[in-house]
Amino acid sequence: MSEITYLEAIREGMREEMLRDGNVFCIGEDIGTYGGAFRVTAGFLQEFGRPRILDTPLSESAILGASVGAAIMGLRPVAEMQFADFVANGFNMLVNFAAKAHYRWGAKVPMVVRLPSGGGTRGGPFHATNPEAWFARVPGLKVVVPATVRDAKGLIKSAIRDDNPVLYFEHKYLYRRLKDTLEGEVLTPIGKARVAREGLHVSLVTYGSMVYHGMNVAEELAREGVEVEVIDLRSLVPLDEEAILESVRKTSRVVVCHEDTKTGGFGGEIAARIAEKAFEHLDAPVRRVAAKDTPVPHAPQLEDAFAPQPADIKRAILETVAY
């Protein structure tokens, strides 16, 4: 078994599902001949051909709309947004058409939208956002955010098999940084969080790229005698609320962290649920570590000032422990 990257894990997961189920197809801009802007679908056109690997005009709304229509008819489209930011051009198809179809008239919409998201790559205002909170509040959509190689593969496979529209946020910073060896069938259940690291003193509830940074901080703090429990949510909708509450009951102190901006970010929802359901277990206020409330800036100095850094996570944890 050789090591594969997070990016290769996504590709492997998609490929396995394409081979398993003839209804699965890929649709997006530059995904065929070019293999996708990040090469996630490299080799697919050669292996599966057109139309199962479908290069489209530059039309995000048409890509997502056509995916909705094909999914209602029983196919299983995997649509790629070249960058998560561009999903704004197809917003209506997701929040009004896909999200409401089953509730309104019982139509299943088994589609996946792949959203290369996040910063750390100096992408600037239109190539580095984390728009998961735009969708996590829309009833009818599922939102998953893999943070590991295993879940990159396990969640894309589960998303493809799900009978609902699933938004799959893949983090560009993790694409080639994370490596792992996977064996056998890898399926990650949607709606189930993972205890990435056990700890007694404080819980760090996080997802996506912040799991990577949070784990590094936790290791550093362990050497200083602070045991951090890291909860990797893996899926925001449905949310594994019980996993969060269980950890809070154990540590009594919580830091919530995400790379998305703070106001209206998903961290607010997590903090509210903890306040509603585990208030009496808390020994300190819930702290949020998130990006500043600005667009994502381009220059390295600015992006680093914008996005939560390991030092910010560490400071919030130490303040929470000392409270």
Partner: peptide, 20 residues
């Protein structure tokens, strides 16, 4: 196929039906 109130949305969706 059910419409939604946002007009013209049905056009790409019906293209998806045709694509199937």
């Amino acid at each position: 196929i059910a419409p939604i109130s946002m007009l013209a949305s049905l056009i790409p969706v019906m293209c998806g039906v045709a694509l199937s």
